[in-house]
Amino acid sequence: MSLLLDAPLALVAIAVAIRAVAGGDAFARVAAFMAYGLVLGFIWVRLAAPDVALTEIAVGGGITGLVLLQAAGDARFSRERGVGLLYHVCAAILALGVFAALAAVVLLLPEPAPSLAPQVATNLPATDLGNPVTGVLIVFRALDTLLETVVLLVALIGVWSLSPDPLWRGRPAPLWPAPPSGALDFLARVVVPVGVLVGIYLFWAGADVPGGAFQGGAVLAAMALLAIMAGLMPAPALGGRRLRLALLAGPFAFLGVGIAGWFVADAFLDYPDGITKPLIIAVEVAITASIAVALALLVLGPPAGRKA
């Protein structure tokens, strides 16, 4: 019975993926990729992983698609020499080989896969968290998430380093070329408040139900971008102290709590028993804030060297 729903989803995903790879107009390929992101979101729901579905749609399909849309116009500048038919055939054969190998592995992987679910279940109460995924993210594998925020920060520094403005005081280039029209203004005025509410809810509920810092941060970033595009909010001056503090808040709050762990608890990134939940929430607030700012700034791009 479930095949009835899974097979079409799979076929749509493959069709969209082939369209994204097939070539032709860059804009169409990016649109296909955004559809791919959404379809993957449904598939993650089918795999009983709502947290990942949210992330896939918000970050994988949404903001990544948005960033790729910006690049759609410039693709032609990096076009290299085409390859002959023989190459295409070889590539196809190798791709089929990869498919065969991976399919064999997926089929051969032990059916009741060896899993850490029981261990997470037994240790979750110690973290006062309801949502196991957030538990893994913030407590059991806290180092990965800490590094995650640092990766975002370094990627942003990398994007900024491309600008001619040595001290990055300027503002990024405008997202929407034309002066904001009435429809955009109306859309922003209605959707942004709702979006911000949803973002904060997503982050807040993340402790016990699917949601979390990344998903909430992504929605908040999207709303900020919409407000900037509609002209309700000026594009931020990237040299601003408040902006940079917000950027640094996530990773360094997490680091601070981690270092405190040595003295208050018994290891780096270990939460003292009494106040685990509030401490985690505080850390998540900082992380969500810096993720939202970082994602938005990554889409906005490097400072354009103008003070305007």
């Binding site: 290299e80 020499r81 390859v83 190459y87 070889c90 190798l94 080989g97 990869v98 190998a101």
Partner: peptide, 18 residues
Amino acid sequence: RRWSTAALAVVMLAFVLA
């Protein structure tokens, strides 16, 4: 050092190792 050759080489190398 052409991208096409290098990408092909990556996948072929994986199969050779396997």
